[in-house]
Write a protein that binds this DNA or RNA. Structure first.
Lengths: 226, 226
DNA sequence: GAAACATAATAGTATTACTATAGTTATTAA
DNA sequence: TTAATAACTATAGTAATACTATTATGTTTC
């Protein structure tokens, strides 16, 4: 299986970077190390200077790949959504029942992640923690409209639309498929965050990952029931 | 009505500030102007220096009230949640039916706001925009656990618990009342944000505020149905 | 072997998020 | 009324941030 997928590559829209980090060893180091460092320090304390030091290069080099810390974050998050979409497409192909496909989608959205051997330089586990804790900061800015015009959020929108389509297959009369999907996708993140840091806001137990999936599956299927 | 409530005051836990901004004219100016300025510039571009200039004072004065930009944000958000709680308690008193009380709660969570004449120095409309666009940044930090120990999120937790209790009254067997409430509260915010900036992620129309309420009411009542 | 490119090294800028200190004005208490 | 105290203003300073700019050095590639 591993070798079969060896030449799969998750690509991110080229508007997000100045130079494709997948195209060089330095670029891959930047991605790999930035994931570990943002996870470790949090976005606020993460700087290109610290990243450069850890890689053994200088800020200038990193700025040849990414215009800013913000676009690097957008890159990482886009990569994550593209990876989820790839897993979703893979897991739902040849499955006739829309209900089953929707269950798989919710499983993937709420799922505990394992590092994917197909992408050795990416720690998906750390990346998921970044997406949980930092992804809202990618769009909650005054620049959201121009960023959106540049296609910075296409990966997320594409994944959501794919799941929304499954819902419409099941119940074409349900009026809020897009809202339901974005609600579930966002909820999956901060329910995990709450369970770890503000547990009174959730009934999900940090260690029992299946509860989140149950909560969301129940929510979605009841909402779209005819 | 206005005069009846003239002596009502929303208070924020004293751990959030160094000196109570409600206790002086300067303090009230700080609150009033910071709401307008954060709304205008966004949290990232907002600085104490700009705030001081607009008020006609210096940074030092503002630092006597708030330790940092972060605690000022926590103050504003706490004030907002306390204000919602006060409106919720007011609107649900003497209403016997738990279902009706839950509907009111969802209405308030998803509701379009009008400025409240009882608190002249606070623009609730601008404050709601701040809560929508910036409140996640108050807890999505590496300091969330210490902030939580200091009680920075008590207002939000108290409001959520109150609504969660209504749900438990309606269906004591429902397993995820707290998760459902925090999901709805968060969803109410970013569905509005999405409708304005990333409309493909939602079916809610920016101008039709009743859709959001309908979406959330439907979601909640179906979820907790026996 | 020259041109083109990637990276490194170094320096510099405007701004931020504060801290420190001294002086001025307003409030309160004896 | 005076003296003490608190609130506020003015000014200066610091370390760090998020970049930009320039020049030098090595490395491919035609």
């Amino acid at each position: 299986m591993k070798s079969l997928l060896a030449n799969i590559k998750i690509t991110v829209d080229e508007k997000v970077y100045l130079k494709d980090p997948e195209s060089s060893v330095k670029g891959q180091q930047i991605i790999q190390t930035s994931i570990l460092l943002i996870d470790e320090l949090g976005l606020e304390s993460f700087t290109f200077k610290k990243l450069a030091e850890r890689i053994g290069t200088t800020e200038a080099t990193i700025y040849r790949y990414f215009e800013s810390k913000h676009t690097l974050l957008v890159y990482l998050i886009s990569w994550y959504w593209n990876w989820l979409e790839y897993r979703l497409v893979f897991a739902t192909s040849n499955i006739a029942s829309a209900e089953d496909r929707l269950k798989i989608a919710i499983h993937i959205l709420s799922g505990k992640i394992e590092n994917d051997a197909n992408f050795a330089h990416i720690s998906e586990v750390a990346l998921q923690r970044i997406v949980i804790a930092e992804s809202a900061k990618a769009y909650l800015t005054k620049e959201v409209d121009t960023d959106n015009k540049h296609g910075f959020f296409l990966s997320y929108k594409r994944l959501c639309k794919r799941i929304s389509n499954i819902i419409q297959e099941i119940n074409p009369d349900y009026k809020y498929p897009d809202s339901l999907v974005s609600t579930v996708a966002e909820s999956a993140h901060y329910q995990i965050f709450f369970s770890q840091h503000l547990p009174s806001l959730t009934n999900i137990n940090d260690s029992k990952q299946s509860q989140l999936e149950e909560f969301l599956t129940d929510l979605v299927f009841k909402a779209i029931e005819k």
